[in-house]
Design a binder for these strands. Sequence first.
DNA 1: GATTTAAGTCAGTGTTGTTGACATATCTCA
DNA 2: TGAGATATGTCAACAACACTGACTTAAATC
Lengths: 182, 182
Amino acid sequence: MAGIAEAPGRDAPEAQGRDAPEAQGVASDDLIELLFFAYRDFVGDPDRILAEYGFGRAHHRVLHFVVRYPGLTIAELLDILRITKQSLNRVLKDLIEQGYVEQKTGTSDRRQRLLFCTGAGADLAADLTRVQTRRVARALADRAEPTGASAASAHDFLLAMIEPDERAAVCRLMARRSRGTA
Amino acid sequence: MAGIAEAPGRDAPEAQGRDAPEAQGVASDDLIELLFFAYRDFVGDPDRILAEYGFGRAHHRVLHFVVRYPGLTIAELLDILRITKQSLNRVLKDLIEQGYVEQKTGTSDRRQRLLFCTGAGADLAADLTRVQTRRVARALADRAEPTGASAASAHDFLLAMIEPDERAAVCRLMARRSRGTA
DNA sequence: GATTTAAGTCAGTGTTGTTGACATATCTCA
DNA sequence: TGAGATATGTCAACAACACTGACTTAAATC
């Protein structure tokens, strides 16, 4: 039973004969739905912590990217989050005023405001990351394959789900973490 | 290069020596972020179609589940979406008034309102599903493994990401599609 | 010095979520 | 049959988070 009770479809492919859009065991249809449920629970974890601070998901997203990519500019953050300047400013102002994020004037270009987390910001971000990491790690461990293979597989799938034109930008961003802050 | 330009981490595991929280090639950290990007683009597709109808994501979610699980009750839908009755009623009212969804009084329990899509609702839902299915199918095809294996792998990962207590309910729901409407 | 760019700000609006209270119809069970 | 539980619908008020469009300031570029 694939490790999980009542796993549908793949364990009983003959049962979907009615109007199955695909001849495979797992239809893309089902993945759409599972992605909804997975994301629903995935964002649910940090929500509880955020509520204690009077913050919402928008604050979380900003904090997440600032702590992971110190020195991020406003323009970069806008491009990542795909929201308007107005929406970003609203939550960013909260985070700055309450001492979780700080801005420094850019050195090479003094028009830029480089974003950094304070100690408190890093602590909060770590709390939030912890619960999400726990869920992901457990999901990987719950599988039959070795955890490394599961992770690689999930990585490739999620990356491939990103708009092709955007993948390079995402990879470039994520590559920053292996190198310096530049 | 794993089929995708500039894939980070796994192809250069030695580069993450700094403060790597895990010794593996792909960190749970990165999956958190990829899930954000993947979901961002995943919901972006239908948004463009929905805008033409004056609908939003909330309408999409309702339509999706009603077309997939005809005869769904209000209580079931509330449990799936995890929103309040008020939030659901607002969008459901739009969909009913504009002829995309209809209600029928339950037969065994006349208090229940069973939800069904009209022809127009099914057509719209099909349009929305099409763009999302395309993205998922492409993501699966972009991988090195056979598509069936990729799909099974993605299925297991997403299912495992769901809150353990909820998995049985999700599986029970999804199993309806293989059987009758009951 | 003119133009462009990065960022900040204002006013107004829309969607989607929340709470809490209350009404109605129907079912269940004693 | 009557009491209570359940399924749904509805009201008013509110909050989070997104949008648009216009405008300002400071700094870079040419």
